[in-house]
């Protein structure tokens, strides 16, 4: 849980593993927390040596158009700052819902889990880089 319904806004930790930033989203995410995360990641990329961002969403039960937009914006901002973003571990029910919602998020790169996301970013000829 990231802040309860009555809790304050606890920021989402951004971990650095080598030159990859790893973010794990869990449970309920308040709009304000998501916007804060977007800023935190952007600053971390701009300041540090991060060349990639992995966002693990395996603990996220729903993605609505707001959170979808935040994820897409994190990826586009990272790209402008020369870093690549992979969203990992989307639950099947979330994928079905996003497709039906019409929110297919082109341009957002995905992997089935965090390990594959790391591999994708480590690969020199990564399709992520080509924007496919």
């Amino acid at each position: 849980m990231n802040g309860g319904p009555f809790g304050g806004l606890t920021p989402v930790p951004v971990l650095a593993l080598g030159d990859i930033l790893l973010v794990t989203l869990q449970g309920e995410l308040h709009d304000g927390t998501a916007e804060q995360l977007q800023e935190d990641i952007t600053h971390r990329i701009a300041q540090g040596n991060a060349s990639g961002v992995v966002i693990d969403i395996s603990g996220v039960e729903i993605i609505d158009s707001f959170l979808g937009r935040i994820l897409a914006e994190i990826a586009s901002t990272a790209r402008l700052l020369a870093a690549r973003t992979v969203v990992a571990g989307m639950r099947p029910a979330v994928a079905i819902t996003l497709a039906e919602l019409g929110l297919t998020l082109p341009g957002l790169h995905t992997a089935l889990n965090t390990e594959r996301a790391m591999d994708l970013l480590a690969s020199p000829r990564s399709p992520v880089q080509k924007g496919t």
């Binding site: 709009d31 039960e61 729903i62 993605i63 609505d64 158009s65 707001f66 639950r91 099947p92 029910a93 979330v94 079905i96 819902t97 039906e100 919602l101």
Partner: peptide
């Protein structure tokens, strides 16, 4: 079911926003 729950919660989140 889980998929129906997810759709319903997502719709509720859109409309509540």
């Amino acid at each position: 079911g889980l998929v129906q729950q997810t759709k319903l919660v997502t719709a509720a989140s859109e409309l509540a926003r």
